[in-house]
Amino acid sequence: MSKEFEKFLLKKTNEVVFIELKENKTVEFNGVVIDSKTPLPVLLTNIVGKVNEVSISDFKTNDFIDGMAYIIGIDNEFIHKSKYIDLLLAIDKEIWKKFLSKSLFLANNGNKIDAIIYLRVANVLKKGNIDILYNYSRILEEMSNDSSFDDNEKNIFLDESFNSFKEFINEFPDYPFGYYHLGFHYYNKKNYAIASEMWKKSITLNINEDKRDELIERINDIDAKVKYEEGYNLVINGMHEEGLVKLLPLENDYSDWWNLMFFIGLAYRGLENYSKALKYYFKVLDLNTGSIETYNEVGLCLMAEEKYLEAEKYFKEAQKMHIDSSDIWCNLGIVYFKQNKLDLAKEYINKAFELNPDDEVTLAWKSHIESMN
Results as ranks from 00 to 15, higher is better:
residue 71 I to A: 03
residue 65 I to S: 07
residue 55 S to Y: 07
residue 90 A to P: 15
residue 109 N to C: 08
residue 66 D to I: 01
residue 121 V to R: 07
residue 113 I to L: 04
residue 108 N to F: 01
residue 58 D to C: 08
residue 80 H to T: 03
residue 126 K to G: 13
residue 79 I to H: 07
residue 93 K to M: 02
residue 120 R to S: 11
residue 101 S to W: 01
residue 55 S to N: 13
residue 125 L to D: 11
residue 43 L to N: 10
residue 104 L to F: 06
residue 50 K to V: 07
residue 136 Y to V: 00
residue 47 I to T: 02
residue 104 L to E: 15
residue 116 I to D: 07
residue 68 M to R: 08
residue 112 K to F: 00
residue 117 I to N: 06
residue 120 R to P: 01
residue 65 I to D: 06
residue 94 E to N: 14
residue 88 L to A: 07
residue 115 A to P: 09
residue 117 I to L: 09
residue 122 A to N: 03
residue 50 K to R: 14
residue 66 D to E: 14
residue 111 N to V: 06
residue 48 V to E: 12
residue 106 L to A: 06
residue 71 I to S: 02
residue 119 L to W: 02
residue 125 L to G: 09
residue 114 D to K: 13
residue 122 A to F: 00
residue 120 R to V: 01
residue 64 F to T: 12
residue 62 N to K: 15
residue 101 S to G: 10
residue 57 S to A: 09
residue 131 D to Q: 08
residue 116 I to C: 04
residue 51 V to F: 00
residue 66 D to P: 05
residue 94 E to M: 05
residue 122 A to L: 00
residue 96 W to K: 09
residue 54 V to D: 10
residue 103 S to R: 06
residue 90 A to S: 15
residue 40 L to D: 13
residue 69 A to K: 07
residue 72 I to T: 06
residue 103 S to K: 06
residue 89 L to Q: 15
residue 100 L to R: 08
residue 82 S to L: 01
residue 85 I to R: 13
residue 45 T to L: 05
residue 45 T to M: 07
residue 86 D to G: 04
residue 83 K to V: 10
residue 115 A to Y: 01
residue 105 F to G: 12
residue 126 K to E: 15
residue 44 L to W: 02
residue 113 I to M: 00
residue 65 I to C: 04
residue 132 I to S: 01
residue 57 S to D: 15
residue 128 G to T: 02
residue 134 Y to C: 00
